[in-house]
């Protein structure tokens, strides 16, 4: 009995290991090839991965263990960047959900506003950065404006779409059982639209990262983007690469955290969908 169990567990582990290997062998191969090629070529612009990692450590992870090894510079760089990103994202989320609900509930509001929204969405957000620079100066409010403007569209359009797709029977049920406008919104419309709202928020998070970077590149005193500017000025390709890898990792982490929350909040949705297929 025990032996069979153990064998089964071993089999499972072997399976997982094989799957992991199947997914990652190319990645490992590519990184190794890069390392070798970069070392042999000695090209300044394309440092080997080990050099990039050491640049990252030197820049951001040389601090004391009590602070998770974060250096002072890491705190200076990460805090403004992350706070702008999250604040802009949250603001855009609130505005997008609020407007999206209004548009989703009213067919007329939707028809009236659709052309305006479609155009607003099509404007590449960076083109407004010079305008925001003049309007708000070079600072937090410019960066927030750029992030909010760029990020609000996916949330807004997804919310409107989700709200429009709420089952009429669910709305009827709520009305028949005497749920007033606010209760209907709170207990029926928003939960029903939640899968689409979450999808919009996730896309928005990715956009927010892009806009954070470009807004910081366009000149503000602090943040990861300005670290990239400094690295370019000082001609340090290794630090540029370090910044790129850091931003990629940040994107992964943010997306992962968001998925974790989404999974928890939408457990019912996944369950219901599994049942229906």
């Amino acid at each position: 009995m025990k032996r069979a169990e153990r064998a089964e567990r071993a089999g499972k582990m072997k399976h997982v290991a094989l799957a992991l290997l199947g997914r990652s062998w190319l990645l490992v191969l590519l990184v190794a090839a890069w390392e070798l090629a970069a070392r042999r070529a000695g090209d300044l612009y394309f440092p080997p991965p080990t050099r990039i990692v050491s640049a990252m450590r030197e820049l951001w992870w040389s601090g004391p263990a009590s602070r998770l090894w974060l250096s002072d510079r890491a705190v200076d760089d990460f805090v403004p960047s992350l706070s702008h990103l999250l604040l802009g994202w949250a603001l855009a989320g609130i505005v997008g959900i609020a407007v999206g609900v209004v548009i989703g509930l009213s067919r007329i509001a939707y028809l009236v506003l659709d052309p305006v929204l479609q155009f607003g969405r099509a404007v590449p957000p960076p083109t407004l950065i010079p305008f925001f620079m003049v309007a708000f100066g070079l600072g937090t409010s410019m960066q927030l404006a750029a992030i909010v403007f760029g990020v609000v569209w996916p949330v807004l359009l997804n919310t409107a779409d989700g709200v429009r797709a709420v089952e009429p029977v669910q709305l009827d049920s709520a009305r028949v059982f005497g749920l007033g406008g606010f209760a209907r919104l709170r207990y029926v419309v928003l939960p029903a639209a939640a899968p689409r709202i979450f999808a919009g928020l996730r896309v928005a998070l990715g956009f927010a990262l892009i806009l954070m970077v470009i807004a910081e590149l366009m000149g503000s005193g602090d943040g990861i983007g300005s670290r990239l500017n400094a690295a370019e000025r000082e001609f340090r390709p290794d630090q540029l690469w370090a910044g790129i890898v850091l931003l990629g990792a940040l994107g992964c982490v943010l997306n992962g955290l968001f998925l974790l929350v989404e999974r928890k909040a939408l457990a019912w949705h996944r369950g219901a969908r599994r049942m229906s297929t």
Binding site: E167, V169, Q170, D172, S173, V176, F177, G178, L179, A183, Y187, V188, P191, A192, A194, W268, H269, A272
Partner: peptide, 26 residues
């Protein structure tokens, strides 16, 4: 009202108990 389409008139994001309890807010 009891609708024909139970899959759509019940709220999938609420438990059975909360589905029944929700109208009682009124």
């Amino acid at each position: 009202v009891v609708f024909q389409d139970y899959t759509r008139s019940l709220f999938p994001w609420l438990t059975v108990r909360d589905n029944v309890a929700l109208p009682l807010r009124r």
